[in-house]
Design a protein around this nucleic acid. Sequence first.
DNA 1: TTGAAAGCGCTAACAC
DNA 2: GTGTTAGCGCTTTCAA
Lengths: 341, 341
Amino acid sequence: MQRPSVTMKDVAKAAKVSVMTVSRAFNADKSVNAESRKKILAIAESLGYVFDATAANLRTQKSGFVAVTIPSINNANFAATVDAISERLAQAGLQVLLGYSGYAIDREEELIVQLLRRRPEAIVLTGGHHSPRARRLLENAGIPVIEIWELPADPLGHVVGFSNAQTMHGMVDHLVALGHKNICFVGGEETGDQRGMDRRRGFIEAMTAHGLSPEHLFAAGPAPVSMREGALAMAKLLDSFPQADAVVCVSDLIAFGALSECQRRGIGVPEDIAIGGFGAYEIAAVAHPTITTIDPQPREIGYRTAALIIDLLDPARDVAPRQRVEIDWRLLAAGSTSRRV
Amino acid sequence: MQRPSVTMKDVAKAAKVSVMTVSRAFNADKSVNAESRKKILAIAESLGYVFDATAANLRTQKSGFVAVTIPSINNANFAATVDAISERLAQAGLQVLLGYSGYAIDREEELIVQLLRRRPEAIVLTGGHHSPRARRLLENAGIPVIEIWELPADPLGHVVGFSNAQTMHGMVDHLVALGHKNICFVGGEETGDQRGMDRRRGFIEAMTAHGLSPEHLFAAGPAPVSMREGALAMAKLLDSFPQADAVVCVSDLIAFGALSECQRRGIGVPEDIAIGGFGAYEIAAVAHPTITTIDPQPREIGYRTAALIIDLLDPARDVAPRQRVEIDWRLLAAGSTSRRV
DNA sequence: TTGAAAGCGCTAACAC
DNA sequence: GTGTTAGCGCTTTCAA
């Protein structure tokens, strides 16, 4: 039960070759005889040898890791982005080292330190808001830094994202075109969720641009907010502002909670009140009515991020610094916002 | 932009001490003068030094990693387990190295190889079904192996889980007590989702035990299955077996899809047909009606797993081999299954 | 309380 | 096509 610790040396001895040849066999170096290689790998397998990446990394100064931070693992959209990153990077032999910042800037700083100690070859950060020390560490790390899911005003390095504020212009335009005027917003207060706050800001901008009052803002509590909070916030909203004819929610989960609350009260959606969400979560497509939402293409964010990293790590390619990849978002109009008569 | 590569040597030189003293300072060794330590850490920070865990790991033969495999990141329950594991292990200075097996046994084998190369100090596997080579690798790895989310008949090492089949006895007993007889099951066919298949098996056992026909089984497609597939499967079910008075679904997502399909058709839940799910997903508590489900306590699985690992890695504690921690599950009766008249 | 030497398991660089 | 030597950045061990 103790570490058997079969090393390359043991394999070399058993195969009657030098350690170097074993190393070459494992790294698929062409200079090693194909037959020797096959034999060596077979002997290694029979000895139960497992290549030690730690030692190789130290020598080559390449960890094979890409560090990724997300606010929470329990969010289908971030999960989709991470999944896409992992999938694409695995093809390039890179492994994702994942960490959760818990929507807290100081948790993120500590996390970044822990991740940098592993000497990742690149680091991906969800969001563009970091502590001063975190910024310093990242700037000095000497590795590509990619911020995703936002378009930070002052990016650390590369960016793969979209304007969360802009998406809300799309949503408000859609509702105004349908004849809505008393439009409210739920979520995105000061909570550490920068993207939610950006969407709230975008809502205010868009309402103002249409000459409508952007003052009907309802809190849903600190991130992460979900369905339950959506129902509670909607109850508050209906009680305090019954004239509301549309509600924009910071996420589809909130929107679904809001929809549930309406159904509980016998309020018709979209006849009495329209509801819009964000995120194109599965629930938006399955709920009754289906929920109008914004698709931010989370997998596309992941793929583009991974592709950028692969390019950046390829010494043959000379990628310009501070790439800015803007991801298209789409409004998906659905049953929860239908034409007014 | 190239690796600045400040090493301990550089810090030592700047602080006018030996590398060894710097090492002691970073490891909070009491033998180092408190004032020296403070000074050294300040100098290190000013130089932008970041401790190199790779090098330390090689020397100490401890990686600080615990490897964890889950079928998919995009599953709130596995995410909750991983989150709880990470949280608890972080307190012990251990980092989670996460990988996705994609519900495929050969993907899992490849993943296990990749993870073992990083020399984790323990490995956690979701599920108890592995390829022969994977089993061999894990047995020879010389580290604690913990299988979770199931109670495998032939475990590799330790187990933290529950009987998926048993939970369906609970669900069927509940429905039978309410007077249901024509009970169907949706999901869990041969798809690589061992836990889903176990639940399907448990359903068949329980129905047989009650003297009821366990033959109304409906496929929902290969894992991962979700809301959409639930709606489609329910449509098939309603068309081919209109006498059905209750449906047990392999997960709450399927159950919600099934509920949606009923609502679309004007079929009353629970008046015309009762629906049960699994997983205690948030949707079960927010849907209308709320959905009766099984809570498998995913965070508890994570905490108990992490606690076990911490004990196992503590040389002072002598934990018996092949621990078997059984997690309690609970039936949460809700609106989708109400008493028959 | 601090330092010097040796080495963890692998690979770059250079021989042969 | 294969082997030898040296060393990646730390820490163990022993000495002072």
